[in-house]
Amino acid sequence: MTDLFTPAWRPSRRTAFQSLAVLAAGAASLPGWAQAPAWPQKSIRLVVPFAPGGSSEVVARSVAAELTKQLGQSVFVENKPGGAGTIAMQDIAKAPPDGYNLILGHVGTLAVNPYMLTNQPYDVNRDFVPVTLLAKVPNVLVVHPDVPAKNFKEFIAYAKANPGKLNYSSAGNGSAGHLSMEYLKLTAGFFMTHIPYRGSGPQMTDLLAGRTQVAMNGLPSVSAFIKSGKLRALAVGSAQRVAALPDVPTIAESGYKGFETSQWYGLLAPAGTPAPIVRRLQEESLRALKAGPVTERFAHDSALGVGDTPEQFAAFIAAQQKIWKEIVVKAGIKPD
């Protein structure tokens, strides 16, 4: 006999656990139930595949500083040059996909190396997940003041009349400067010798000393030297003139219609990084790009902040790969 306060049936311990499991499974399907562990809980490493001193440095450190404020954890930049960016890319491809290892991808590592290098130890489309396109940076053609060319037209004429006399430098094989100059050489039909360096820092040292004479660099790495007269700007590779150099024409308007080349930098994580973390990184990156210190620095260097979605960045990479595959083949670009 049972009273109103005594259950007529008591489940076994096993049955109770099974019931709880069923309830938990059902609840986990509801929005907001299944949450990844709180992220971030420690410092985040952002690897840059070049030596300090170039446009990649400006973009990476500007954004990393804001992300540090927003996330409450240090986002520190680690420069890891060498191998046309493959050393850094391989590092991140093998890193734990936990949101604490990121890389700054760019046109060389993502759109050119797959066609320039035959034995990459990773697949850029399989081993990484795009997070967001951070910035586009205009390229500018600069020469040492000793070069007897005062404008772009004179430079092309001099280069054609003196094949091999000029040496152009870049931050390394597969770098944006290397690719842009090979693109220009192919388009305009002249020859210069390529001198690759391990990063924009050492590249600029020799360019300023006159040991190399020409470069096609991102504006942030050369703007101060243009203003001081240590380098002469002849043309920009962007579709329109840039505000920082209003009197410098585009290559397109200088006789090569349709020519356009810019440096671009985006954030990627190892494949398998949880989707909520990727989405959070994209959202926080967009927020960082809108922060005053970043917008001011980008405006100073005529860089365009983007902050698009992972899906949009993936589509952008695919489009760039199609463009640069053709250029690599036609120009015969190979690692030196």
Rank of each mutant, 00 (worst) to 15 (best):
Y265F: 15
A224G: 06
N162K: 08
E296C: 09
L234I: 05
L281D: 00
A239Q: 13
A28V: 04
A111S: 15
W9R: 15
D91E: 13
L231R: 01
Q312P: 00
T205I: 15
A28D: 02
N101A: 08
D206S: 08
Q41F: 06
A269W: 06
L289D: 00
A209G: 09
S19L: 15
R279Q: 15
P49D: 07
A64D: 11
L4E: 12
A95V: 05
F128E: 04
E326R: 13
F316A: 03
M192D: 11
Q240R: 08
P196L: 03
L110N: 09
L141C: 06
I226N: 11
A235P: 05
G174V: 00
N162T: 07
S55H: 07
S74C: 07
L268C: 00
K230W: 01
N79Q: 09
S221K: 11
H106N: 15
A288S: 11
N151I: 11
K69F: 07
K42V: 01
A159M: 09
P114W: 01
P138N: 04
K42T: 08
G99E: 07
G53H: 12
P97N: 10
D91G: 01
I327C: 04
L110S: 11
P270G: 05
A135F: 03
A157D: 15
A93C: 06
R14G: 12
P7R: 12
G272W: 01
G108N: 01
S74V: 13
A36Y: 10
I327Y: 06
V107K: 09
R126K: 15
A25G: 12
F128P: 04
R10V: 14
K160S: 01
Q203G: 03
S74I: 09
F190I: 04
G210R: 08
P97C: 08
A51Q: 03
Y115A: 08
D146F: 13
S175Y: 02
